[in-house]
Amino acid sequence: MTDPILLQARGVTKSFGGVNVLKGIDLDVLQGQVVSLIGASGSGKTTFLRCVNLLEEHDGGEILLDGEPIGYRDQGGRRVRLSEARVSAQRARIGMVFQQFNLFPHLTASGNVTLGLTKVLGKSKAEAQEIAEHWLDRVGLSAHSARHPYELSGGQQQRVAIARAVAMQPRLLLFDEVTSALDPELVAEVLTVMRSLAESGMTMLLVSHEMLFVREVSDHVLFLEQGRVAVEGPPSQVFDQPENERLRSFLGRFHGLFGASSA
């Protein structure tokens, strides 16, 4: 592959109150790739994702987006935190979709999408409105653009959240267990939208427990265990011939969906 590396993590570490949650994560995401993080809860997947757009600050190592360090710059060998304005500008290039949707409760679906377009990207109201209509249509919600979040189902809220993130035309989209808070019958509608984004060439980094979906859409899968990458590779290798014992037992929990699970 000759696609340039979009996101690069080198030895990323993070601890919370003396507990090392990330113990040196290395990861590359090429442009247009879908990369997935799987692992038990507490393995550090979500924390890593949150470090990528600086909702958490990593303690060591570096995260580069398009070759530019996220959150810090190097000043004579010392790590210096970037200004809030610079950090905000970096975040605008990375979209994030949350487990709990996190829609702004006081704004309509359309207002949720246009806020960043007008205030961060400086687009006119009319142009932002047009972009919002386009993306709400893409996620199948053009009829609901004037509704407030509390008037929408969980699946609809999550699709608005995806439209909000992708409308900013980010370089990279982060998905943090975006179907975990949904009723089972609403999961499919969200996965359909994500699949169509992946097919359109959007670069995506996801944390998910939807193993079938991960296997289907991912170019690369990383199995995290206790803050380290324990296994990584293409989905066929990770899911179908897992050599790592822990990975085997982790996958075995998903109802024997995968051939190598110990039954």
Binding site: P105, G116, K119, A161
Partner: peptide, 24 residues
């Protein structure tokens, strides 16, 4: 979560207050 969402779309600190925190 609202503050995090406003960070994630790239709003600056005062914009987060003005457009998200204060209205809510």
């Amino acid at each position: 979560q609202y503050v995090e969402a406003s960070k994630a779309i790239g709003l600056r600190p005062w914009q987060r207050q003005r457009y998200v925190v204060l209205p809510v």
